[in-house]
Design a protein around this nucleic acid. Structure first.
Length: 823
DNA sequence: GTACACTACATACC
DNA sequence: ACTGGTATGTAGTGTAC
């Protein structure tokens, strides 16, 4: 039998003590297939140098005779082979040790206490990763697979008949095809409940959305909507949910935060109702793995929690203030959640149920659309990094980098380094190293500004200077370069290491696909370019990350040190060419062009580029018409990481200002934004001042919408772990008392009310703590005019006006008058 | 009772 | 704990006077 097959979900199972893969995917005629395959299980013992043949032979015999007793199976070494390999760039002799079951790797490795062995490696790589590396059956690539079909056979304990698949094939020969097209069958789901604590309340309804498929299952109220189906009780509804999933037979079942909420809730309610949530294609229920975050896996179907992928891969590039389904959908899809004000089901009026159903359905619609939108990225990440979708959607950025590395080490004949275990503590306690250089700006309004930036600066430094674990030396060697790290010196050899070479490849691929995208504007090259960009950006942090297999703090420190050196040298060159530099942060430099033509600036850029080492490259970011840098509030010098620019097309670029900070009230943010806009577009501060005065007037006259006064602060840890109680912690406590859901990561929303008379001093000043006057959005109380003027509006605009030496007295006057009036 | 230094915390920049 | 360091700024905390 021969089929064309695309692997989607990978699982393993044991049969007669051996490990087998159970790979679920699709055939080209859209049938669901399962491939059974296996691969050799082994790890490496790297031998000490200068062993003679006899010693090696003797060691081999000793290793091959290892037998361990375990309850479930016999543990033994099957055979060994001697290989010439590389480890961290050095040639080594290594013994390949074959065993029966990968779960014994650790145990056997622990038993190899022989003096001839220097190191043991690759016993800590999980079986699925190993299989993909070994057999090259990469996720989401098409293959021609020949093998025996298992038709109700007893093979592998009758696995064929226990799976809901169209065919089951024992793989014999695997050949990669070059087709890359694939559209998965996606089913999105979402639940609504009365209580937020997992399993505490009943599940009122479940929505399901697929292609031409929309359903809301409930057991509450009948509905006029045709997509609503009513069942007699919660249990029947849960069973119908399982049936619908089975019938739809999706490749992907996707939720938004479903690892943390929907799936655990469904499990809890299924248990309570004595029914089995048999979503797996083998009839099994979701399996949860513990970690800091709950993760749930469904056999044969990829359970995606799209929120997790968005958080790791998308969030650094999103503008959204939260990663809620609503915020992310409005940014990525231009579509919002339906409106529904949450209330307990007992309080929902008859006619209101329909909008609740609509709301529930819309959540699944958005989740479905988001998944469709993000699919090219998910697929390309999975292909490039070589990990199954399930892992791709949940792994951290450092894991992505590491998996990509592991996937590319074969051509270097490298044995893979181990994960740190005992080393972690020591690595964490290591002193931090010096990072980026940030230029101290002079406050002021500037015209005709140019921004240069280094392309993938840290990546290009790592590549150009060969900075990595395998190329690092703690003492000078014949050809090494020396980097000074605050007194300590680090050395890096010239011979190219695999890490910088692989990174160079990543950067080149990024360039290639970016170019390709600019020509074709297709999703595939966009997703590829994006994936390589993210990998390049995370590679520097990876080498400084304590959990990395290829951790080398000196390499990370040297990267930062060399980046500082080159940005400072470049600043000097620019100034020598007669352009005043006004600001610089890490990899960017801004300079004043004044009246000199752009052509000259570009010539300077070219000249600088000729002198830069290796693949380092300075690029033109943009020309700006005008820009403003302000004073630090606690000092009389320029603030770093805070500026606003307007380019020649009139587009604003605002960095660091309150405008872009979510923990300031909208009124302050919008006012500041307007002020910056007036100043930058027209270079006119008068209008801006008038605008602010008007806002002040509105505040004093209590004409401001309460919603614009809400301060939003995120709760970052459990309430009782806070050492100091800031207003948002007080609010969190109050919400909890009121029985409202409070969880880590949530945004606490509050406003500040007027002080009572006892909260005032004789002179009329407010005493006491702000948190005592913090109120929930719908709590009573008049907003405190004084607070919003002095703690929100004025701080946001004060040092902008200061740039113009504009006496803020005018504004201050307002402030004083208010105080007098208040008194 | 208040002024001040210091700490805790959140958030942004690159 | 789940890439790195640099930086600003508010509100609370503790202490001296």
């Amino acid at each position: 039998m021969e089929i064309n097959f695309i692997p989607i979900d990978y699982n393993y199972f044991d049969y007669e003590g051996r490990n087998y893969l159970k790979i679920i995917g699709r055939t080209d005629n859209n049938r669901r297939a399962c491939i059974i395959d296996s691969c050799p299980v082994y790890f490496w013992a790297i031998l000490k140098q200068d062993l003679n043949e006899k010693e090696i032979k003797r060691l081999q015999e000793k290793i091959e005779s290892i037998r361990l007793k375990k309850e479930s199976r016999n543990v033994e070494v099957l055979k060994t082979e001697l290989h010439e390999k590389c480890f961290l760039g050095e040639k080594v002799k290594a013994m390949k040790i074959f065993i029966t079951n990968f779960k014994d790797s650790h145990d056997i490795a622990d038993h190899l206490e022989f003096k001839e062995i220097d190191k043991k490696r690759e016993y800590d790589i999980d079986f699925i990763t190993k299989y993909i590396l070994e057999k090259k059956l990469k996720p989401l690539h098409w293959y021609k697979i020949t093998g025996d079909i298992l038709n109700n056979s007893e093979d592998f304990g009758g696995i064929d008949s226990s799976l809901e698949v169209d065919l089951c094939l024992k793989a014999d020969k695997i050949t990669e095809l070059d087709n890359l097209e694939f559209k998965p069958k996606i089913l999105a789901f979402d639940i609504e409940t009365d209580e937020f604590d997992i399993g505490k309340g009943e599940i009122l309804m479940i929505s399901l959305v697929g292609e031409n498929f929309k359903k809301v299952l409930t057991w509450k109220k009948e509905s006029n909507h045709s997509f609503v189906e009513k069942f007699s009780d919660e249990k029947t509804m849960l069973e119908a949910f399982v049936e619908y999933v089975k019938k739809y037979s999706p490749d992907i079942l996707v939720g938004y935060f479903s690892d943390g909420f929907d799936i655990p809730y469904l499990r809890a309610r299924a248990e309570k109702n004595f029914t089995k949530l048999s979503l797996g294609i083998d009839g099994s229920k979701p399996v949860f793995s513990r970690g800091k975050l709950l993760t749930s896996r469904i056999q044969g179907i990829v359970h995606l929690d799209i929120y997790r992928f968005i958080k790791v891969v998308y969030s650094p590039y999103l503008q959204s203030e939260t990663l809620s389904l609503n915020d992310v959908s409005s940014e990525l899809l231009g579509e919002k959640k339906a409106v529904w004000i949450h209330k307990h089901s007992s309080k929902i009026k008859h006619h209101e149920w329909d909008s609740y159903y609509e709301y529930n359905l819309q959540d699944s619609v958005l989740t479905y659309k988001l998944t469709e939108k993000i699919w090219p990225d998910l697929m390309e990440f999975s292909r490039i990094i070589g990990q199954p979708l399930f892992d791709i959607s949940r792994d951290s950025m450092s894991a992505h980098v590491e998996n990509y590395l592991m996937n590319n080490l074969e051509r270097y004949n490298e044995i893979i380094e181990k994960k740190p275990v005992s080393e972690i503590g020591e690595r964490i306690s290591k002193e931090r190293y010096e990072g980026a250089f940030v230029y101290q700006p002079k406050p002021g309004l500037y015209e005709n500004i140019v921004f240069f930036d280094f392309t993938s600066m840290y990546g290009s430094v790592i590549v150009s200077f060969n900075l990595s674990k395998s190329t690092y030396r703690d003492r000078k060697t014949e050809d090494s370069i020396e980097v000074d790290l605050e007194g300590k010196k680090a050395y890096f050899i010239q011979k190219k290491g695999f890490f910088p070479e692989i990174l160079n490849d990543i950067i080149e691929k990024r360039k290639k696909y970016k170019k390709e995208y600019n020509q074709k504007k297709d999703n595939l090259s966009k997703a590829r370019s994006n994936a390589f960009k993210l990998l390049a950006n995370a590679s520097y942090g990876y080498q400084g990350f304590f959990g990395a297999r290829y951790y080398q703090q000196e390499a990370a420190a040297a990267t930062a040190a060399l980046a500082r050196k080159y940005i400072k040298e470049t600043i000097e060159k620019i100034e020598k060419a007669g352009y005043p530099v006004i600001y610089s942060d890490t990899d960017s430099i801004s300079l004043l062009r004044d009246k000199r033509p752009k052509k000259e600036v570009l010539e300077l850029l070219e000249k600088i580029n000729k002198s830069l080492p290796g693949i380092m490259e300075l690029d033109l970011e943009d020309f700006y018409k005008r820009g403003i840098w302000v004073t630090k509030r606690t000092g009389d010098f320029g603030a770093k990481k805070k500026y606003a620019l307007i380019n020649e097309e009139g587009k604003l670029k605002i960095r660091g200002f309150e405008t872009v900070r979510r923990d300031w009230c909208d009124l302050a943010r919008n006012t500041q934004n307007k002020v910056l806009e007036y100043i930058l577009t027209e270079g006119n501060q008068k209008k801006a001042l008038e605008y602010v005065k008007d806002i002040i007037k509105k505040i004093k006259e209590r004409k401001v919408d309460k919603n614009d006064l809400m301060i939003k602060t995120q709760l970052k840890k459990p309430i009782d772990e806070y050492k100091s109680e800031s207003p948002h912690v007080t609010i969190a406590k109050r919400m909890k008392e009121l029985g409202m859901p409070v969880d880590i990561g949530m945004l606490m929303k509050y406003f500040i009310i007027e002080p009572e008379s006892y909260q005032k001093t004789r002179t009329g000043k407010t005493k006491g703590l702000i948190r005592d006057r913090a109120r929930l959005p719908d709590e009573e109380g008049k907003y405190d005019i004084d607070y919003y003027l002095n703690n929100q509006i004025l701080p946001a605009v004060e040092n902008i006006f200061e740039v113009f030496n504009l006496e803020t007295k005018e504004i201050m006057n307002g402030k004083k008058q208010m105080k007098l009036g208040d008194f």
